[in-house]
Each structure stands twice: as structure tokens, then as C-alpha cells.
Simulated scan of single mutants.
Amino acid sequence: MQTSRADVADMIYFLTIARHRSFSRAAVELGVSASALSHALKNLETRLGVRLLNRTTKSVTLTAAGDVLAQSVHKPFEAIDSALESLNRFRDTPSGRIRINAAVEAANLLLAPVMPAFMDRYPDVEIDVVASNLMVDVTDAGFDAGIRYGGTVPEDMVARRLSADIRWVIAASPAYLERYGTPAHPDDLSRHRCISSRLGDNRIYRWELARDGEALQIAVPGSFTVNQAETGLIAVLGGAGLMYFPEPLVASYVKDGRLRLVLTEWSPLEDGFHIYYSSRRQVPTGLRLLIDFIQEVRPLGL
């Protein structure tokens, strides 16, 4: 059977669907509609004369034939991607598309502030950021890299530091503190309104406080739980209660008086943001340039 151009394009679609086990997630990565992907796969299966995927309303799985095909063509297509990427060194202006899965705070505090200048310097490099606190396998999910706090970076990945260590603080609005008082010791938190955080693995975060070698993990009372600090920040600014934050997220509000820090002697310094990627794949030029740029600009110190 002779391979057509349509086969090559549809094979890329097939590999992306196979990696995600999802038409909708593959469609997001490829920038097409899920219905277009479904149509392309049906055409590919018709031309090949075999079913490649089992589809239900809840899942997408590979058939035996689909598994054989995915295993057979994965490395050749990866080699093509690598060869095309190597052409960047011959271009006057680097180009390419980089997909990054970043913790929400990293996306807002680290990536967004540098984007205007980065886009001016490298106008043909496209950065696609998915901001999420859920821990994902960035390679399996089709990302070039992930950005997380250093302590949560997977051990089997190459990691590079993008920021200085970050201090964690407890903040509240002046109105809340005037109404309920200011805690003088971590034990006082049990008598306050606190906004709780849900971690990427669905656990409720225990506030980690430290002073002079003494470390505490406190399960604070909370009638409001959020999975993004930015959501809690809005509530805290409105007087909802106390919340534990990375200091850069609240620094401007503390400076203008809209928030106050409490228990500052218990504020620990924790690992800063790191970017991580697979050691088994060539580092895309755009990703290398972005890492170098952030380390040059240092939006959160380094």
C-alpha cells in the first residue's frame, strides 16, 4: 500500500489521540475540532481496512492493530520532529510551538510577566501555556515541559531553576483583622476563619509554618476551600478570612495596604519554581530560549 499525504497527516492525528486517549484533549493540542479528528480517523481506518481505536462515550482505547501501528510509527515521527527542530539553527529568527503545563501561580507570576519582551525578541516562537495545579505526566500529555515548585518536580525529569526560593505568608484584609483580631501564635488559627487550599492530588493542604527550627503542619478550619490561590485571594481581599500564600502573589496588595501579613516570624522559605522536561527527547529551541530568557530577566529573582 502506497502512503499518501493524507495518511501522513491522519497518522499525526492518530498518534496524538493514542497518546491522550481522548479526542477532545488531542484536539486542543492540535488546534482542530474533535469532530474533525473523528472524521480524519474514520477515513484513515477506512483506507487501512482495520479499526485502530475503540470509542465509547467515556473512553478511547487502542485496538490490537492500533497498538501495533502506534508502536511502529512513534519513533519515526519523533525523528522527523527532531530533524525539523534542528533546522532552527539555520533560521535568522527561531520558530516553533512550545506547550507548557504550569502551576497556576507560575503561569501568573513567572510566565505572563516576561511574555511581552519574549514575544518582541522571538516573534516566531509560539508559547502555549496550560495553567493547572493538577500533576500530570507532561510527556504523555503532549507537553514539552512543566513548571512546578521544586519540591514537586518528578525525579525522573531534567529540572532547571527559574526563580529564587519563595517565602510563604499568611495574609488577611485589614477589615477582617479589625473584626476578628490578629493571631499571635499558630494555635490561634483554630479560632479564625481560614481559606483552605486543595492540592493537585486532591488533598487539603496543611499549612506548613516554621520558626527557629520548630516546624508545624496545621489543618486549619475552613468553610471555603479552593484549588487555586487566585480564587482565595479575591475572597481574602473581600474580608473572608486568612489564607496561606506564596509571598509574590500578595506583595502588591500588602504594599498598598489592602492586605496585612500575620505571624510573619513563622513564614518559611520554600523551593522556588523549576521547569522540567524529559531527558529522552531533544530540547526544542523555543523551550531553550524561553528558559534562558526567564533566567536572564529573573521576574522572581534567581
Rank of each mutant, 00 (worst) to 15 (best):
T285V: 08
L53K: 10
S22F: 07
D10R: 15
L48V: 04
L37C: 10
S4M: 06
I218T: 11
Q71C: 07
T3C: 10
S38A: 11
I166P: 08
V8S: 10
W168D: 11
D156R: 10
A171R: 05
L242N: 11
V68Y: 02
I80P: 00
R5P: 05
S163I: 11
R89Q: 15
I127C: 05
T231Q: 13
G142S: 00
R121Y: 04
A103I: 13
R298V: 04
K58G: 09
A102N: 11
K75T: 10
K255M: 07
M157S: 12
M11F: 08
P183S: 06
A83P: 11
L233T: 06
I218Q: 12
R160G: 02
V262K: 02
L233S: 08
F23L: 12
M115D: 02
S252R: 15
P123D: 03
D144G: 13
M243Y: 07
T182M: 00
V73I: 15
A184C: 03
H185K: 03
L237M: 07
R97G: 10
G241V: 06
F23G: 01
K58R: 15
E45C: 12
F273G: 01
L237E: 09
V138E: 09
V283Y: 11
R280H: 08
R21N: 01
K255L: 10
R206L: 03
F224L: 15
E45Q: 14
S132C: 01
H74A: 10
R280W: 01
H39E: 13
V50R: 09
D256A: 01
G150A: 01
V153T: 09
A159L: 03
S196E: 10
Y122V: 07
R161G: 07
I98C: 04
P183D: 06
K75H: 10
L109K: 09
Q282G: 05
Y13F: 13
F90L: 09
F118V: 03
V169E: 15
Y122E: 07
L87G: 02
V283T: 15
R179Q: 15
L62D: 09
P183N: 07
D187C: 05
L261R: 12
M135I: 06
T152N: 14
T3H: 06
E214V: 15
E247W: 04
V158I: 15
L110V: 12
W168A: 08
A6T: 04
R191V: 01
G96D: 08
L290W: 05
R211E: 11
A184D: 03
I234T: 06
A18N: 05
L300D: 02
P221R: 13
I80C: 04
S72H: 14
A145E: 09
Y244M: 08
G150N: 00
Y277Q: 05
A34K: 11
L199E: 14
D256T: 00
S223E: 14
A159I: 04
T152F: 14
